[in-house]
């Protein structure tokens, strides 16, 4: 197959702006191609916004940023109808959500009411305001971030809503060499706004379609079901993967296969992403909260691949 998106080339190019964030960038693109949404759980100041801008820019997409606070209202996100004196009618002013890429910063700071409004929009890909339904633009991709350290005064997302994010990742500190570069050259965020798009919006949509057509054999489906079953039976977990979770595995695996220039899924596509797809969807017993990734990894290590 001949994929339109050469991920290695793209990452190479962007690494100039995003020092040492290749992995996060790739995961981000996978989430985009799988038509899901991404949750980044990380400390402030590691480059979440830069990442979101980079994605938006290189695919020629609109970008908006919402800083979530406790007084943020749903209408601040979705938009509001304002009375126009000249026409004498209410005029709809679309909110920031009517963009292709929406960065919701510190989503856990806002109230559950606003959170659910946002998440509903993410799920339905449309918003209903005052009885009128507005379609969200295509592609629609939400990158939400949350701060894992500051718990006080936040509203942690309930598991049911976490499930709506196809993956949860963390960027992590950049490596020393990358950080040195940043310190020497300063932030390159401004320059990002001027880069030329790699692909057009239409091309992204057609790639998303192609990703859906990636072949997944029965053997792989069985393998995924094995994983799902293992999470449900695991002694460290209260609750295993939902069916939506299993679907998320399939979709991300397909996107991963596509990025690896394959039109069929292999077990590695799944294993690669398992910790990002599974961890936030299962409920750990309290005593094991601290070792989530380890548990998921060891779980995967005990499931036989088809060959």
């Amino acid at each position: 197959m001949d994929p339109k998106l050469d991920i290695d080339n793209l990452i190479d190019f962007l690494s100039y702006y995003l020092h040492g964030k290749g992995r996060a960038l790739k995961l981000c693109i996978i989430a985009l191609l799988a038509e899901g949404h991404l949750l980044i759980e990380d400390l402030p100041g590691v480059g979440k916004t830069t990442l979101a801008i980079a994605i938006a820019r290189c695919f020629g997409l609109n970008f908006a940023r919402i800083q979530a606070t406790s007084d943020l209202l749903p209408s601040d996100i979705t938009g509001i109808s304002i009375y126009n004196k000249n026409t004498g009618e209410f005029e709809f002013h679309p909110g920031p959500i009517f963009n292709n890429i929406v960065l919701v910063d510190e989503i856990n700071r806002t109230t559950p009411k606003t959170q659910s409004a946002l998440l509903e929009a993410m799920g339905e890909k449309q918003v209903t305001i005052e009885g009128k339904t507005y379609k969200l633009p295509q592609p629609f991709f939400v990158i939400a971030t949350q701060n894992p350290i500051e718990i006080y005064g936040t509203f942690p997302l309930p598991e049911a809503q976490l499930d709506r994010f196809i993956m949860k990742i963390s960027i992590g500190y950049p490596p020393r060499s990358a950080e040195k570069e940043i310190l020497k050259g300063g932030s390159k965020r401004e320059e990002l706004h001027n880069i030329k798009p790699f692909l057009s919006k239409e091309e992204i949509i057609s790639i998303q379609k192609q990703v859906k057509e990636v072949y997944i054999s029965d053997k792989i489906t069985e393998y995924i079901l094995d994983i799902v079953e293992a999470t449900r039976k695991n002694k460290y977990l209260y609750a295993g993967l939902s069916t939506r979770g299993a679907l998320a595995i399939v979709n991300t695996a397909k996107a991963n296969a596509y990025l690896n220039k394959r039109d069929f899924v292999i077990p590695e596509d799944i294993k690669d992403l398992a910790e990002y797809v599974i961890t936030h969807r299962v409920i750990f017993k309290e005593e094991y909260e601290g070792t989530k990734e380890e548990i998921i990894k060891s779980l995967l290590e005990n499931i036989k691949t088809p060959v």
């Binding site: 292999i266 077990p267 590695e268 294993k271 995967l300 290590e301 005990n302 499931i303 036989k304 691949t305 060959v307």
Partner: peptide, 9 residues
């Protein structure tokens, strides 16, 4: 090969 390993892995 570990049974849980993929071939490429």
């Amino acid at each position: 090969k570990n049974p849980a390993e993929g071939l490429e892995e």
